[in-house]
Design a protein around this nucleic acid. Sequence first.
DNA 1: TACACTTTAAGGGTTTTCCCTTATATAATT
DNA 2: AATTATATAAGGGAAAACCCTTAAAGTGTA
Lengths: 215, 215
Amino acid sequence: MINILIADDHTMFVDGIDSILKTEKEIKVVGKCYNGPDVLSFVKDNKVDLILLDINLPGMTGIEVCKALREIKNEVKILAISMFNEESFVTEILNNGAQGYILKNTGRDELIKAIKTVVGGKSYFSDDVTQTIMKGLMKQRRASKQKEGFFPKISRREKEVLRLIIQEHTTQEIAKVLFISLKTVESHRSSLLNKMNARNTAGLVRITLENKLLD
Amino acid sequence: MINILIADDHTMFVDGIDSILKTEKEIKVVGKCYNGPDVLSFVKDNKVDLILLDINLPGMTGIEVCKALREIKNEVKILAISMFNEESFVTEILNNGAQGYILKNTGRDELIKAIKTVVGGKSYFSDDVTQTIMKGLMKQRRASKQKEGFFPKISRREKEVLRLIIQEHTTQEIAKVLFISLKTVESHRSSLLNKMNARNTAGLVRITLENKLLD
DNA sequence: TACACTTTAAGGGTTTTCCCTTATATAATT
DNA sequence: AATTATATAAGGGAAAACCCTTAAAGTGTA
């Protein structure tokens, strides 16, 4: 038997889901909440396997509820429900421990499939949501690719020096590690500053990390 | 009519797909390749809408083929096929411009659906693959969360100073911008070094960026 | 109110970084 | 063979960063 808590501020929607789930004998709706804080207190006092959580709750958003739940009761599964197939919402709530994300236009059969999948320990996402996430993933990849493009050729030795700088070593230490003169290291540093258009060590480190020049 | 090129080194598999696709009248298999270089030269000389690309080609892997294709003919869609539901493979090939990824145990109907979806400009992934990617995504998130967790409270003012340091400003400049004494800025810098366990500016910048302390 | 933290500031000193120029030997590329 | 890039190195000086100590005023919280 799967114990479910429905959390949404639209009563009709809550009741709609409730009646849908009534037809499934393995599923039992043990509670209904219409705002964030109620969810938290309900979960503290009752056995709940899964929460159908609207991400647009008033006062305390679903995302905040999710975050809080992770701290007080990590084992309860969360299936996020939303009107919006918005990448930022999806990533945000996945980020905070939700196992699934479905849209409000999801049909009866899919809703039940989603619940069972999540309770079974897997993740579930509506097809549309998957599409959205993937698009976001690839966009991200493309973006990071573009940034990579416009950067300078740093020689082998310079990379070694740069790596050591980022590891917080001073010029003196670098010279010792690489068995070269302090002045040589300074010369490499200077070339690095030039090539990377940095004003100082801070810039060197920032530009290197932001553009992943050492991977 | 969708023109398809099949690229896989296992002849029987290629022929199997070929016979499956023969039954679909909107799809036409225009070529079969058994290694990477052949794919590239075939695409140069023929009109191909989609390539069913095995990622484990001999010599030149599917991933390399994918990368090369992006440069010579960006418009051709790629649907990756593999025996393995391995996260690294999936992310790698998505990274290099594939629009979909299905497993070799995919059935006839799903294969055709995948082809049509990708040709239609969307992405397609087998359910198992989706599962894998999501797991990877969340693992990644958890990992970066852990790192975030163990870090220090930096005061408002210190954050301002830190931000300016990362923007390559010197102590003097920071003092002027914030209308405070140079000595005060030095004092903040010193506190930052202490709190963040950094030896110098390089460490300050690295730790800040790696742990996203300024977002 | 008292305690803790933050923000401000200073003096004085050491170490490190940065800038400029110059220079040689060794690849790599054209 | 000639040019370009790389790795090495040095001198000398200016600027910046770092260290240690001390301290007062302001903020927030128990």
